[in-house]
Simulated assay, not measured.
Amino acid sequence: MDADFQLDRPLKDSRIVVAMSGGVDSSVVAALAQRSGAEVIGVTLQLYDHGAAVGRTGSCCAGQDIRDARAVADRLGIAHYVFDYETAFRDSVIQGFADEYAAGRTPIPCVRCNQGVKFTDLFGIARDLGADCLATGHYVRRMIGAEGTELHRAADPARDQSYFLFATTQAQLDYLRFPLGGLPKPRVREIAAEIGLGVAAKPDSQDICFVPDGDYAKIVRKLRPEAGEPGDIVDLEGRVLGRHRGLIHFTIGQRRGIEIGGSPEPLYVVRVEPEARRLVVGPKRALAVGAARLSDVNWIGGAYKGPVTAKVRSLAKPVPARFEGDIVIFDMPEYGVAPGQAAVLYAGDRLLGGGWIEETMSAALAA
Rank of each mutant, 00 (worst) to 15 (best):
G182Q: 04
E190V: 10
Y101T: 05
A347K: 04
F5V: 06
C61E: 07
V289T: 12
A131G: 05
V117Q: 06
E275I: 12
T149Q: 02
V280M: 00
W356M: 13
L236C: 09
L351F: 02
A69Y: 08
V211F: 08
S162P: 01
I125D: 01
G42R: 07
Y304D: 02
G355W: 01
R271H: 11
V280K: 10
Q254F: 09
D2K: 11
T309V: 09
G290P: 06
E259W: 13
P339M: 04
G253E: 01
R67Y: 14
G51I: 14
T360K: 06
L352F: 02
I327T: 15
D8I: 11
Q46M: 11
A146D: 13
D331K: 09
V281A: 09
A217N: 11
P186T: 07
V140D: 03
R285L: 13
L176N: 01
P10V: 04
T169R: 05
R271Y: 11
T149R: 06
P203L: 00
L32T: 01
T168L: 11
G355E: 07
A62C: 14
R278A: 09
G253H: 08
F97Q: 10
D349W: 05
Q254L: 12
R256M: 13
R255K: 12
T44V: 12
E194P: 05
K222V: 14
G354D: 01
E226R: 13
I260L: 01
R278H: 08
G336T: 11
G348Q: 03
H80P: 03
R153P: 06
E150P: 03
H249N: 13
D4Y: 08
Y48T: 14
I144F: 12
V82I: 09
M143H: 13
R187I: 12
S26I: 05
